[in-house]
Design a protein around this nucleic acid. Structure first.
Lengths: 217, 217
DNA sequence: CGTTAGTTTGAGGCAGATCAACTTTGGTGG
DNA sequence: CCACCAAAGTTGATCTGCCTCAAACTAACG
């Protein structure tokens, strides 16, 4: 079980119809900010359509893609459940449609939809594993392994999204130029195929095998 | 609110006496492994005495200190709440005494001690913030800032523990030699005082100010 | 007091960043 | 449908922060 392995969970099943009806629909164009680091808001956002990136922005321009939230997933639960303000900003990586649910407190969530509360606890636990594994990878592994694992992960979440070199780099801690060079090498060695902006992974098993090879001194 | 800021929570208040009596006492010498990555166990460990490090071990020897669990805190809740196996190993950083509570399932925890379940959810959410902020720092900031913030954080958790260069480095993604050099520089510039193996922070505000200065360009 | 773990300092190397110039892609409006 | 343009990607040259290796020193502990 590594960070790039992901089980898809159907959050929708845990959202009672009554709740959904109370939610309000919002739309954001690609590139727009859904919310900013530091803002305080006790609410949940259900991503109906599109992909959202949880971003750690930096003055010097080396932004980090902390988390990727795909369709039919929730956003904002970490802040709600910790009663903290947002620790990062949410960016629309595509055009996004979401349903926003307002809560007054964690207690309300827990009381009104206890199953959802439990599901979110579990999601937090999985997110934490993923973040800590990436923390380990980012210092311990070379860039080629990180790019490979990031490719696999991002493709899994949203196979059809044309992930940019920038996004891949921001996720695994590398510059776009470095990602480009790495992808070129992977294509030369027959592990992937690039056609225009599209990246096709030939064989995930072989890729992971190659990734491990690269770590042996 | 950054990763190195930490609020102390008293878990003990949430542990009913009945539960504590059912727990079993275990002791580990410094350097011993409490549990290993991959093991499966539905239980909680209450650290009665000592400090535990959650470690990401690596064949090449660049280990990562993922989390530090101090006295009167719990360990093992991420695995319990996600129903996953341990994603990292737990290492006794000092001699450790703990009380182990066996659970059959998340449901049991939630049913028998719902307040504890809620507290753990909140803890997960805070841990996730911390991990993601470190993820951002480790790529975006230079080693000197990371060492400074790590010093502040580790000192906060356990002021009296003689944190080693290795532990500091394993926490912030740096080699012991690099940590040594950084600490020497910080001492030369009057920000800290080293006496033997002891590190004294003169002024946390000044340290953080200096940390930010180092990030300009 | 010897042994082991931790610290310090120096010299040299390298993975990946940075800088710069150029090409390709894909969306937009005329 | 094509021309245009901004955004994304590529490639090369150079630089550098931190790692690596090595060797000596110091603290802690049975």
């Amino acid at each position: 079980m590594n960070f790039y392995e992901s089980k898809k969970v159907n959050i929708l099943e845990q959202l009672p119809l009554g709740l959904i009806e109370k939610g309000s629909l919002k739309t954001f164009e690609k590139g727009k900010i859904l919310y900013r680091k530091g803002e305080q808001d006790k609410g949940l956002n259900f991503i109906k359509k599109g992909i959202v990136g949880l971003m750690g922005f930096s003055v010097s321009g080396d932004d980090t893609l902390l988390r990727v939230i795909g369709e039919r997933n929730l956003l904002g639960y970490r802040s709600l459940l910790s009663s903290e303000s947002y620790h990062a900003s949410a960016l629309a990586l595509t055009d996004v449609e979401l349903i926003y649910f307002k809560f007054d407190s964690v207690q309300q969530l827990q009381h009104e939809v206890p199953e959802l509360h439990n599901l979110l606890t579990q999601t937090l636990a999985v997110d934490l594993r993923r973040a800590e594994q990436r923390l380990k990878d980012i210092t311990g592994k070379r860039v080629i392994s990180r790019v490979i694992e990031t490719l696999i992960y991002l493709k899994q979440i949203h196979p059809d999204h044309p992930w940019t070199r920038r996004e891949i780099g921001e996720f695994c801690g590398a510059r776009t130029e470095t990602v480009t060079r790495t992808l070129s090498k992977l294509e030369r060695d027959g592990y992937i195929q690039k056609s225009g902006r599209e990246i096709k992974l030939n064989d995930i098993g072989k890729l992971l095998e190659f990734s491990e090879q690269c770590e042996i001194f």
